[in-house]
Design a protein around this nucleic acid. Structure first.
Lengths: 256, 256
DNA sequence: AAGCATCTGCTCGAATTTGCTCATTTATGT
DNA sequence: ACATAAATGAGCAAATTCGAGCAGATGCTT
């Protein structure tokens, strides 16, 4: 090998793989290959070895961490959060810290934003959402909750349509937390449903700042309808796979 | 464009499905398909596998969670619904038969009206409510559901306040189904909360017909704020204790 | 320096998973 | 009860992943 990069010992790689797995609970061969700059063949060999040693659970496509029943400290929200992907929890936890007193916050319907609600502590801010389940969670946390009026889309239990957009007019949010199905350098933020896109579009336009919460799987994906260009939304994610995004807008990577 | 799509491990998908199910207690195949951006075929296969493992309850159209120990439907409003259960059921069952095709129905927040929703069969009518839980129930019955926008009152999870009233303007209901805390010959229909009273008042004014659903315990009670005089609302009850009411408005007694 | 063992990365056929189509079954409305 | 619509599962083709085999590189010994 002609490279001057220090050789990574096999044992060292094993430790790296295990620590990554410990954090993520599940990784693909491709992820490990990219992160460690090692060929997939070697990753496969390592995973096989580690699986034989009983250090991890090998599955088709990658590996999962062994189910450790170690955590007795898990309570309520944390318990549900651990069942949920760790990424969304980390993203939600960070995003929640961005809310300050007297903020007028819009919370978009979606799973990542729902996780965010569980970490909100600021009771002086005011919250508006278009998600029926989101509204319930806000209320259960004793927060100042408002819901957008309009037609409810059965699939996602989100308020959409013309009257929903009308409901948003005149509301000037200080911060909007949006979910998205796709993030792309040229297509921006996109979602499959046109009605939901219109609502998102209006909410973003009516907000002073926009934060898009999305885990790494949403990058380089393009859905049917774009609701905002890349530059208008700060991205909060667990891992940004490409610096082409940080060149075009603010990207905050939270650590797991 | 290199649409780099991040692989999601099968095991990971299982966890995601279970956590979503934990959150919502019931999901459709279509919902999971959209949430996880995965084909319905795969979702079906996953649900079958998870059902075989005994991790969830597979039903036609989707899946339901196993343990109903802690759910959104058993908190707050749903708990109080247990009082006068048989009476409310009978009242709701009858009231639901009053809804016809092309009706534009307003359903007030409250426990009796919530029971009413469970008996609605007409899918051609359109339904508007100010209750968050009511909206969820309407959606789960695949009905045309709209929600009023505005501030959510924590105790009853009902939308109240000025923007709620504004949300109602321009809506001309054919039928309104209202709950009430008190019915009195002189004070009319009354409720303890002034904000909720204002919403009720507006809804009644905007409706061609008004039905007040109330069990016998509500008669001869007067609460802080009157939202409608006795004559504007037909009363649907299990037992009317006094013919002074039937002299002043239409009273329908349903049998248990 | 040459020999040898080990590790790494690449290639390719086999195995697995995934998404689509379509006939059948199940639910809903008249 | 009948007709219509929706959901389901089996079958099939495409995409992805796996593992064995092979060649080059590295490090250690002679």
């Amino acid at each position: 090998m002609m490279t001057e990069v220090r050789k990574v010992l096999t044992e060292e790689r094993y430790q790296l793989i295990l620590s990554i797995l410990e954090e993520r609970k599940a990784v693909t061969v491709a992820q490990l290959s990219e992160q460690l700059s090692i060929s997939e063949s070697t990753i496969r060999r390592d995973l096989n070895t580690l699986a034989e040693m009983g250090k991890l659970n090998k599955v088709f496509g990658g590996a999962t961490a062994l189910s450790h029943s170690s955590g007795v400290f898990e309570t309520g929200v944390a318990n549900r959060a651990s069942a949920m992907s760790a990424e969304k929890t980390a993203i939600g936890k960070y995003a929640a810290t961005l809310i300050h007193d007297d903020d007028f916050v819009y919370i978009d319907a979606g799973t990542t934003t729902l996780r965010l609600i569980d970490f909100i502590t600021n009771k002086k801010a005011t919250y508006v959402t278009n998600g029926i389940i989101h509204a319930q969670h806000l209320i259960q946390r004793n927060l100042n909750a408002y819901v957008i009026g309009g037609k409810i889309k059965p699939l996602t239990e989100a308020v959409v349509g013309a009257s929903g957009i009308k409901s948003l007019s005149g509301l000037n949010f200080t911060k909007a937390f949006m979910g998205t199905n796709g993030i792309d350098t040229t297509a921006g933020f996109s979602t499959p449903d046109i009605d939901e896109a219109r609502i998102k579009e209006t909410a973003v336009q009516n907000s002073y700042m926009t934060f898009v919460v999305a885990d790494h799987s949403k990058f380089s994906k393009v859905c049917a309808v774009t609701f905002a260009p890349l530059r208008v939304g700060c991205i909060i994610t667990d891992e940004c796979p490409d610096n082409r995004y940080s060149e075009r807008t603010i990207v905050k990577e939270v650590k797991l």
